[in-house]
């Protein structure tokens, strides 16, 4: 399967990155990692790229790594449309102090606009 993983700089994205790399090496998918811009995130876009590079190298997974400029949701969906991807993988939300699952605006945009199957990682 040809998988596109979309991440920004949050802990949620770090978890999704780790889990997707593990899955990729288990099943031998083709993987492209797209890092989007989210200025309010904990890690910058460049830092997140470095993390992805390191984790991919450690796992011995050969993946394409790209940085996308502009509005994160629409940049990701547009990139997914241009490629031949079977699945778009993104983080599955965060939990509030109460334990409520929260999906942010990027997730909502991707779910409502992506032409591919979307996978949310919990």
């Amino acid at each position: 399967m040809n998988v596109l993983l979309g991440i920004e700089g949050s802990d949620e994205s770090m978890k999704t990155l780790r889990s997707t790399i593990e899955r990729t090496s288990d099943v031998g998918d083709e993987l492209t990692v797209a890092v989007v811009e989210k200025p309010e995130a904990k890690r910058s876009q460049a830092e997140m790229c470095e993390h992805a590079e390191t984790l991919l190298a450690e796992a011995g997974v050969d993946a394409e790594l790209t940085m996308l400029e502009g509005d994160p949701g629409s940049a990701l969906v547009e990139f997914a449309e241009r490629g031949e991807f079977d699945q778009l993988v993104i983080g599955g939300g965060t939990e509030s102090p109460m334990g409520k699952i929260r999906l942010g605006p990027i997730t909502e945009f991707v779910l409502l606009n992506a032409p591919t199957t979307v996978k949310l990682v919990r």
Binding site: E95, S96, M98, G99, K100, I101, R102
Partner: peptide, 8 residues
């Protein structure tokens, strides 16, 4: 009637 995963 659960909302956003709670109650479990």
């Amino acid at each position: 009637d659960r909302a956003q995963g709670i109650p479990p």
